[in-house]
Structures are given as structure tokens and as C-alpha cells.
Design a protein around this nucleic acid. Sequence first.
DNA 1: ATGGTGGGACCCCCA
Length: 260
Amino acid sequence: MKIATWNINGIKARIENVVHWLEEAKPDILCLQEIKSVDEQFPREPIEALGYHVETHGQKGFNGVAILSRLPFDEVTRGLPGNDGDEQARFMEGVFSTTRGALRVVSLYLPNGNPVASEKFTYKLSWMERLERWTKDRLKLEEPLILAGDYNVIPEPQDAKNPENWLDDALFQPESRQAFRRLSYLGMTDALRAVTDSPDTYTFWDYQAGAWQKNNGIRIDHLMLSPEAADRLASASVHKHTRAWEKPSDHVPVMVELLV
DNA sequence: ATGGTGGGACCCCCA
């Protein structure tokens, strides 16, 4: 069972790349972030033609997440609980049936939070608190659960080519890193970090200042696994080559394989 | 280097 996450920075601009990568990597489930589309305008036909079910949680212009799956959805839930006034589309959960029981997969797009001295950063931290509460509750089910997405958090200095350049950035604030670490304390496993101690596992390279050419990247796209999912983890990989494609996203796919 | 690049909506915002 192959499960992947990819921030595509606009589905309409990226549909050809997404179709190409689905054909190449053949994930069973792909979580997308920053679809930047309302549900009605998401180009589902070319994806359904490849045999995928498509569920979206979009909004106009910004944000938006989706889950593409070869397995049919048993349930879909949209939105992260804990703030009824939050209208940003950043979280959805799909539930699937496998031969070994239920599998829960979340596609999440965590707030960027910059600049640090603004309400955007407090929104980021409160969103992370809500995520922690939601995760704590779901872990009681003792099921395989995968929280996949763009966390907008650089967990450790080794997750950036130039960590000193990120000291004033919301992605590398102590509070952001602590909140990410708290997911580990709950029992969630950072899948990519669990299978490699390589420092060069970046998942994002800025469009600006030749970041890709200099390999000036950061690791901010993560798959966090519940104990029941981590027990079945076989491999994790970063599909870095897609960053060199025509019209690339600034993020690349990250994929795990579970023995299910 | 107060720029640089890119997507999407609209005459500016977000990353």
C-alpha cells in the first residue's frame, strides 16, 4: 500500500504533472495540498480516468486539500475541529477498508505563519494545538492512521540546507518545532526520518534566487504515522526529480509504503 | 540586494 503527499501549488497549473506522476509512481492514495480551487472546478476527470476516486475540500484562490484514492472512500470528513469560525480549507480525513481493517488518512495544509509578529503566527500555533487534540482523540482508536501533508515546519537543523537563514521564520520557530515534536510525544512516527538519517531529504525548494540549482531546500512535507501504521512501514522516499520537470511545484511528492 | 518567482484572483494577496 503506497501513500503519498504532495503540495502542488495550484491544481489547474499542475494537472499534467499530477497525472504524469500518478502514472509513474502509482500510489494507492495521494494527498494533495494547495489545490487553490473550489470543489466544482477541480479537474477530476483525468484523475478518475486513471482509476482514482477523488474527494476535495477546496476554497476560492487559496489553500484547499484533496485525497485521490484507488480504494473507495468509506467516510470523508472535512475541516479540523476546534474553531467553528475557521473558514480556511486545510484539513480532510478519508477512511478506507483494507484486508487488515480500517485505514485513516489525513491530508493537511498547516498554516505558514509568517510573519512571526502577526496574528498569522498565533493562528498557526492554535491550529497546531487543535491538530494535537484531534490526533490524541483519534489515537484512542488504535488504528493505522497517517497524517500526511505540508506541515510548514522544519523539524530540525538538518532539515534545512542553511538553517541559520530560517531563524526568524515561522517554519523554524522553537514554538513551531515544539508543537511538531508534541505529535511525536503522542506516539506519531515521522516516516521519512524513521527510515533514513540522511540530512538531504528536502521536499521544498523556493522558486526564487536559484534555490533548486543550489539545492537550498527544506524538509517540511511529512507523513506522521500512528503506532499501528508505523509497525507496517516498509519504506519512505522523496520524489525529488519532479522538481526538475517543466512547470514544477515548489514541493515534491513524499511517499511511504506500508505492508498492508 | 526591501529584489527575486510563481499561482490565482482581480486591480493585490499568499507563499
